[in-house]
Amino acid sequence: MSGERRIVAFCCRECAYAAADTSANARTALPPSVRLVLVPCTGRVGPLHLLRALADGADGVMVAGCLLGQCHYREGNFNAVDRVAFVRRLLESVGVEPERCRMFTMSAGEPPRFVAAVREMDRVIAALPPLPRSGDTAPAAGTTDAAVAGMGVA
């Protein structure tokens, strides 16, 4: 489990997943860290999906949807953009790097853009320290200090 990065990518069936499919057919290698999750529309992805994925072992989550204004369900991706922004704020407020959650947009005809997005996400996550979870043993040094400082604020 340790040492291996895991990124969960929620992909819209209408665009990002189709782009992923095309890129796979072209035998373009994706980073091994990425796990694709097919959703009918990014509007289906809620804060709980993103946060639960992180809590259950993902180091990063990405939401890949249609270009803004081109959602097949009219405004699903706008909902997703706001939910991703909400989750980022949630993470930030408890001291987790908000970069771990990110939204990308692309059209079905842009496999290179999808590959670039996944690689970008993989690069960002690789640069971050491993994500500590409360179930883990021996908290990292500095965690206690941060907790004390946080309590002072709250």
Partner: peptide, 21 residues
């Protein structure tokens, strides 16, 4: 529950919520 697993320090005050949430 998910947040508690990830939490590094207690939440800092209220956060702004985007319009569509």
């Amino acid at each position: 529950a998910a947040l508690r697993v990830l939490m590094r320090h207690p939440p800092e005050g209220p956060i702004e919520v985007p319009e569509r949430v």
